[in-house]
């Protein structure tokens, strides 16, 4: 099974961190993976995007035209990438910043989550990326939530390991909101 996900947002929203986290989790599960960051000329405040492929077999292209899933954290990414998600795919949209509903595409599962508000509720605005990746893992099964949490020690620098419990909480919150959304839709 191949999972390709495209993640995009502002620099500083933690896109590259959750891209790395997903790749580390895949490695922990003994799967193959590629993490490909696209980077702007500017180091801070620009656009941050990355593509992660998780595969049981050989990873082919690290560059994907129409990914099976996307995590879009700001309006510009919505505008640029929403239309590229493959039919039948999944899109996690940060409704705190993105007004567009995504209703225009009936061929997608669209999960709108107010990520900024949710992050502030659990104590730190910076956790929005972890909520998003928790929801992604729950809905796609690309990696297990346990692997994702275990991979925090790989993806976070040593000095930030003290924040791991908070990140775990955020991943769990994302997963719970995703489950609730499925339940509501069912």
């Amino acid at each position: 099974m191949n999972h390709e996900v495209f993640m995009a947002g502002f620099g500083g929203q933690g896109i590259l961190l959750i891209g790395n986290l997903l790749a580390y989790a895949a490695i922990r599960e003994g799967r193959n993976t590629s993490y490909f960051p696209a980077y702007g000329v500017e180091k801070r405040g620009g656009a941050a995007t990355c593509t992660v492929v998780v595969a049981d077999g050989e990873v082919g292209s690290p560059v994907i035209g129409n990914p099976g899933a996307a995590i879009l954290l700001n309006p510009l990414s919505m505008e640029k990438y929403f239309g590229r998600v493959r039919a039948g795919g999944l899109c996690i949209v940060n409704s705190s910043l993105i007004e567009e509903s995504g209703d225009g595409r009936s061929d997608l599962r669209v999960l709108r989550l107010p990520l900024n508000e949710l992050a502030i509720e659990i104590g730190d605005a910076r956790l929005l990326n972890m909520i998003a990746i928790g929801a992604y893992a729950e809905l796609t099964g690309a990696v297990s939530l346990d692997a994702l949490k275990a991979a925090l020690t790989d993806a976070l620098p040593e000095r930030n390991h003290r924040f791991i419990p908070l990140n775990v909480q955020a991943i769990d919150l994302g997963a719970a909101r995703a489950r609730a959304a499925i339940g509501a839709a069912a």
């Binding site: 790395n20 790749a23 590629s34 980077y39 990873v59 690290p62 560059v63």
Partner: peptide, 9 residues
């Protein structure tokens, strides 16, 4: 630059 910047196992 893709091969240089991408991460894999």
């Amino acid at each position: 630059s893709v091969l240089g910047q991408m991460k894999e196992a």
